[in-house]
Design a protein around this nucleic acid. Structure first.
Lengths: 209, 209
DNA sequence: ACTCTTACTGACTTGAGAGTTAGTTGTAGC
DNA sequence: GCTACAACTAACTCTCAAGTCAGTAAGAGT
């Protein structure tokens, strides 16, 4: 007699709740936008009552903040690890890094989070600032250091590393926006891994001495 | 006795109203987000009452739609004109087109509109679709045709034109997002014209046979 | 001066959703 | 089994904003 406990699961599971709430919130914030999402709906999707959300999160904004925190932590350390470990010519490292970003864009919910940050950064500057300081502010210099290493060893010709990084990363931003804003309304999906590979090819070729 | 008519300007000016309302709406939508903006505030910034907005626009969504319409019209025709007129090697044309986009990003409110479209495309698919069909759907093929022309004449090596276009345009998307989402919260502004020039340099160099 | 149309407004209705509170239920420890 | 606390909820308050409507005033035509 497996009753509906698997379906409803109305139990007390304080450990699992925050993650479930965050997942539901991300789904709905993404679909309907932050302001337009009702906490009531987040709650019912997460399988509890609205009031319970307030046991775990201070208010609606802190839900969004928690989502951004989680995403930031997950990504930056991985990338900086890849860079620290690497030895030898940097061109393969660039390909590897772009491949990593492409995979995150294609397979994780990072693009949705990025879209949310972009959408809400004016209305919730704390969130925008956090992203700026912890993702962009760490990610861009990381890439920049790779380009600079290439220039220092003579593998690349001397170029402005700041502008070059933006040219390298730009297509990935495009891909993220595309995936979270346009694919859901019917735009044809495109192969992000192929884009990343092509992007790396072009830049590496453009940087030959 | 110049009464406050210059300040309040409470007159009947049906011709000027729509444009004034749209300008006020763009300001506030950009700052606070679409859903979080009160029509009451749009009205008072435009110098009339909320009810008057409904004389000119069906509802709040159609305000946003009108903004996107206006922006789309303004830009695409200019770019396609530039392409149709051009003769000779396409590399200078690419530089010119990127310079044009950079100027729009730096000087017009296009980035704010783009951010709004990105933010609202899920909740208001009509708006996302319109942008997709009329801006992206025309702009990308336009660029693509330029790359293809270069390949056909042997000026460029053969590459996948679709991927290449995205690599070319990506940095401009990054610039737009940066300007509308991050600069207002304190990110250091960057020189978009320089980015466009560098982007064009890199791509043209990468496409040498 | 007097209409009639058009631009416009103030006050309202309606509905919604964030956050709160008082109370209920699961369950760990005895 | 009982107790006490932690997890949870139903039902509430309170504020806020979209959209409406009945009425006011500008100004063109006569």
């Amino acid at each position: 007699m497996t009753d509906q406990s698997e379906i409803t699961a109305r139990k007390r599971r304080p450990e699992a709740r925050p993650a479930e709430i965050l997942e539901a919130a991300l789904d709905l914030f993404t679909e309907r936008g932050f302001k337009a999402t009702r906490l009531e709906d987040v709650a019912s999707r997460a399988g509890l009552s609205k009031a319970a959300i307030y046991l775990y999160f201070k208010d609606k904004t802190s839900l969004l903040m928690a989502l951004v925190h989680a995403m930031a932590e997950a990504n930056i350390d991985l990338a900086s690890g890849m860079i620290a470990q690497h030895e030898g010519p940097v061109a393969p490292l660039l390909r590897q890094l772009l491949g990593f970003i492409a995979a995150r864009i294609a397979q994780s919910r990072m693009p949705d989070l990025m879209k949310l940050v972009i959408s809400e950064s004016r209305a919730h500057p704390e969130i925008g600032r956090f992203y700026l300081d912890n993702v962009i502010g760490k990610g861009l210099p990381l890439f920049q250091s790779v380009i600079e290493r290439g220039i220092a060893t003579g593998e690349f010709r001397p170029v402005d590393p700041r502008l070059t990084v933006k040219c390298l990363v730009g297509p990935m931003v495009l891909a993220a926006v595309w995936k979270s804003a346009f694919e859901p309304i019917g735009a044809e999906p495109f192969d992000i891994a192929a884009l990343a590979a092509h992007d790396a090819d072009l830049i590496i070729r453009a940087l030959q001495p």
